[in-house]
Simulated scan of single mutants.
Amino acid sequence: MAMIESGSSPAELLPGEEQPAASISVLGVAADPDAEEGLGELLAGDPLADADRISVPTVTTPAAAPAHVDAADCVVVGSDLSEDDSLELLETILERDRTVPVVLLAHAPSRAVRDALTELDWTDRLRPAATRSERAHLADRIRTVVGYRRVTAMARRSLAALAHGSDAVAIVAPDGTVEYVNPLFARQFGAAPSEFVGRPWRALFPDAEVSRLAEDAFPSLADGWRWIGDCELRRADGSTFTAQTRIDALDDDSLVFTVSDRPVDED
C-alpha cells in the first residue's frame, strides 16, 4: 500500500519521461450524493470540474458503487459515509482491483477504516474540501495518485519487455493500443518507435491474422497460458513477413508481443 505524500510527483518514478495527458474518470461515493454542499456538488463544482483531464461521470451511493468501480480511475469516498459503508466499499475495491486509487475525505477516520486503506495499493486522505483552494488541492491529489498508478503499471510492463531484450518487443496497453516498442521491434517493422505508440495492435497484422489470433491465441491467454506461433506480420510500409510470435498477458490485461526470426520448433 502507498499513501501518497503531499508534494510528490509520479514523474519522479521515471526521471526524464514526459507523462501522457490521459483523462481521469472519477467515481464519487456518498451516503447522499445529491445533498446540498455534499460530494456530488463538490465533484461537479469549480475548480474540480474544470481541472485538466478530470471527469466525474458518476456520483453514487455505496450500494450502487460496485457496478462502477471497474470503470473508475479513482474513487473519492465522501465524508458522510458511515464506518460500515466505508469498510464495505473498501473491501469491494480490494476484491475487484486493489490498485484502483482511493481518496478518502474525512476529518478523523476510525482505526478500522485506516487499516482498510492500508490494504489498497494507492490511497490518499484529505479533510473534506470546502474552499476553492481545498478543491483545487483535491484535484491535484487525484491527478497525483492516479499518475503514480499509471507510471507504476508502465514500469512493470517495461520490465516485462526487458526480460525479452534480445527480441523485438511491443507492449500493448489494456485499451489495445501500443504503448511501447523497443528499438529492435521498430527496426524490424520499419518505422521509428514513436510511430507505433497509440496505434492499435491489430495494425501490426493483416486482417486474416488478426482473426486467427482472436480465435486461437486470445482464448489461451484468457486461460492464463502464453501463446507462441508463426504469424504473418505487417511492416509500416504495408509489406508482410512471417516470424515466430509470442504473446504474454499481464495481470492488468496488458499484452507483450515478442517477435523473433526463430522457427517455432527451435523452442
Rank of each mutant, 00 (worst) to 15 (best):
T58A: 15
S25Q: 12
P62H: 04
S82L: 04
D46Y: 13
D52E: 11
A64S: 12
L48S: 13
A71V: 04
D70L: 13
A71E: 14
I24K: 01
E41H: 11
S25G: 06
Q19W: 15
G78N: 08
G78L: 03
D80H: 03
G38P: 03
A63P: 08
G78E: 07
I54R: 09
A35D: 10
V75E: 00
D70R: 13
C74K: 02
G38A: 05
A71S: 07
G78D: 07
S82Q: 11
G28R: 00
S82W: 06
A49M: 10
L43C: 04
A22C: 12
L42C: 02
H68P: 14
D32G: 01
L48T: 11
C74I: 06
A21Y: 13
P47F: 01
G38L: 06
L42V: 04
D73Y: 00
D32E: 10
R53D: 08
E41G: 15
A30R: 05
D52G: 08
E83F: 05
E17W: 09
T58E: 15
P20K: 07
L39P: 12
S23P: 12
H68I: 11
G45S: 02
D80I: 05
L39G: 05
V59C: 14
A71T: 09
P20M: 02
P66E: 04
T61P: 01
G38F: 03
T58N: 14
D73C: 02
V56S: 06
D32Y: 04
A35I: 08
P47E: 03
A51G: 01
